[in-house]
Design a protein around this nucleic acid. Structure first.
Lengths: 154, 154
DNA sequence: GCTTGACCTCAACAGAGGTTGAGGCCAGAG
DNA sequence: CTCTGGCCTCAACCTCTGTTGAGGTCAAGC
């Protein structure tokens, strides 16, 4: 079996796929979207540095809680592009991301509390505006094709 | 301006749209997907009962935290179909939904803590398996066309 | 009795997030 | 030297969550 050669610090796309549990096609997709990067060998194969595993874990974990790839990319863009991120780099990212996560946690807890307290208690007054889209804290988010660009060149 | 007549307990689609902040087209879509229901007037216009506002608020709030419409529909299916849901009905739904929300809250907090504790402290060992897809607790979730039906009739 | 605005249906398209498949390259084992 | 497994690209397709537009109905108001 001709497994591609790698140095210790480089991973093939297959290795990253195996270790991260993400399909190769998804890794290619993430790369096209600028979420991860690779170098190429002489024969044009991708090689990933080990911190890619962390990036992919970060991506999937964030996606799992409903954050879009665009927002995730913005966060990852804070990491240095042409150097392996250090602990400080990730710590800085963490601080920024905490805000996003805290907002979402608060939103989830509000939903849960409104369901149990408000509806559960009998008043049935789930506070609509409060829950459905507090865009002051989360900004525009959520799936769908609702947001068109303001004007498109014809 | 010929606003449609409604009784006190009935709302037109435009009224639901205005009060919920959800586009009419989205309400039609939710109805096609079985998330909300309506009766029709003699002239085929939709009329919604007031609890539809609650359903829509529930849908949007849940969507906002990354839950898919399919999962939301399953939850809403627990409400009685041919009677206005009572406090007890919503309370029952709340209890079930809490589980879903609690799991997501835990997941978010784990992500946050791993980011701040684990990466922030220097060990940099974001626990991949633990974070990316604990399918024992959340089941299969997340966007994309990854899951094809096992076999489709030709 | 016409106009107007809210509503209807149905089909087509949009954007996000991928998967699948065809066709081809490259390197190591036999 | 050939075979094979892993990798490559590119285009097509898929699901999910809606939006847009064309064409039509109905009822209130002037």
């Amino acid at each position: 079996m001709p497994r591609p050669r790698t140095t210790f610090h480089e991973l093939t796309v297959g290795q990253v796929a195996d270790r991260s549990g993400v399909a190769i096609s998804a890794l290619h997709f993430y790369e096209r979207q600028g979420l991860i990067r690779s170098t190429r060998t002489a024969s044009n194969q991708r090689r990933y540095s080990r911190d890619t595993l962390r990036r992919v874990a970060f991506i999937r974990a964030s996606q799992n809680v409903g954050i879009s790839l665009a927002v995730i990319r913005e966060a990852l863009d804070q990491l240095p592009s042409e150097r392996t991120p250090t602990r400080e780099d990730w710590a800085r990212l963490s601080m920024a991301w905490r805000t996003e996560l805290d907002a979402r946690i608060a939103q989830l807890q509000a939903l849960r509390n409104d369901l149990t307290d408000c509806i559960g208690c009998g008043c049935l007054s789930m506070r609509v505006c409060h829950l459905t889209n507090p865009r002051d804290v989360l900004g525009r988010e959520g799936p769908g094709a609702r947001r068109l660009p303001p004007a498109r060149p014809a």
